[in-house]
Design a protein around this nucleic acid. Structure first.
Lengths: 214, 214
DNA sequence: ATATCTTATGACTATAGAGTCATATGACTA
DNA sequence: TAGTCATATGACTCTATAGTCATAAGATAT
């Protein structure tokens, strides 16, 4: 956690430091990022930096918490009352909010991607231990509910499916990012979401499935 | 490319250097890996290293090429005559060979994962430009063939599906790695492959699909 | 034995990083 | 005006890195 001195700073100065850090962590991994560069680009002295933060890790975690907070803001309308909706409707909203966040916060997305990239890195382990297995567990809960309602087949390994769904959650962002350079909600985005959901629902086999949903 | 002096080295010494490098690149990313540590653990002098390799990148690329070569050895029996088989049979073999490689070469897997982790890293771009888009394109070709044979639905976006399939190819390894600590071919592995394929074929929707295949 | 060519060496250079600390600034208080 | 406290500073220490180079060792040929 940043020290009190950091929060005593005028908003503007604080923002400038955070922005410099975001820029740095977007361009460099935790290990290769440089506090020297950050203090330079934010116009503060080295000594000041260590009045605000314990060390590099402290700053990094602060930035990650900003990202998590913002991401949650995108999700929360969707997750208001998750069990009142059809599972596929919910999935559509989740994928949509994930894509929106990604499109509108490319820098934060990049930082997040860099973090989850190396799951063996101590910093990953430390941060994930804080925000314990969120995504997977959420999907598993929703799936359990959907199974009870008969919205999905019974012979499914829910742990595995939830793993797949949360991994597809990353894939869709990655796929769409490479496909387009739009930066806000648009129709094209929804087309991709629909196609992903169609795949999740019906697979690719010929036997059944017409792409309709809800 | 390593210099001639490297290839003139006795097999044993060469192996020792490669092993030390593999160990290092397993534990550290390209940026954080250290030639100092590599020369120390392989028992050669700093000067010698630069008689064998231009620089760190040269060594790294050499190790990556070893990985690619080995990976291809696992794949090649599967890909002997890819168009003579049912698409799902082929997918099963591809996923199986991917899992086998991962299980039997955990160190190499780790290095590969670290590489594909950060797609914005210059070293990634440079290496991928060499081995140009292999995986995605292969899946797309197989899918096109499968569609012509009527093994998959017609209303599919093949570019997207091939993206998903190659991304699931990574997911299955990741999932199984976290699930077990077995290190060779076994039944449990096949169960996971079958479940993944079942998902790919029929999705999770109730309407159809019983998990049978071929 | 001498000359030539290849390989081996590790001290050294130059660069960059994280983190420290004595000192300075400035604002607010008595 | 003098005193107190929070904040700001950047030169400095220590550590580690990649890459170089003059020198040595060894092997092979003449």
């Amino acid at each position: 956690m940043p020290k009190e001195t950091f929060y005593n700073l005028p908003e503007e100065k604080r923002k400038k430091i955070e922005d410099a850090a975001i820029q740095e962590f977007k361009d460099y991994s935790f290990d290769t990022s440089s506090i020297n560069r950050i203090v330079e680009s934010s116009g503060i002295s080295k000594g000041s930096f260590y009045q605000y933060f314990d060390d590099k890790k402290d700053l990094y975690k602060h930035i990650i918490s900003i990202i998590v907070e913002k991401k949650i803001k995108y999700m929360s309308p969707v997750m208001m009352n998750p069990f009142n909706h059809n599972f596929y409707t919910l999935m559509r909203e989740i994928y949509k909010s994930g894509l929106s966040f990604a499109m509108e916060n490319p820098q934060l997305l990049e930082i997040g991607n860099k973090l989850i990239a190396d799951t063996t890195h101590p910093i990953y382990i430390e941060i994930i231990d804080d925000n314990k297995g969120k995504s997977d567990e959420m999907f598993e809960l929703l799936l359990k509910n959907a199974m009870e309602r008969g919205e999905i087949r019974e012979n499914l390994d829910l742990k595995m499916i939830s793993y797949i769904l949360s991994s597809l959650n990353l894939s869709i962002v990655d796929y769409y990012t490479k496909l387009t350079n739009k930066r806000e909600y648009n129709e094209e985005m929804m087309v991709v979401v629909e196609k992903f959901l169609d795949f999740v629902q019906y697979g690719i086999s010929k036997i059944e499935g017409d792409g309709s949903n809800d």
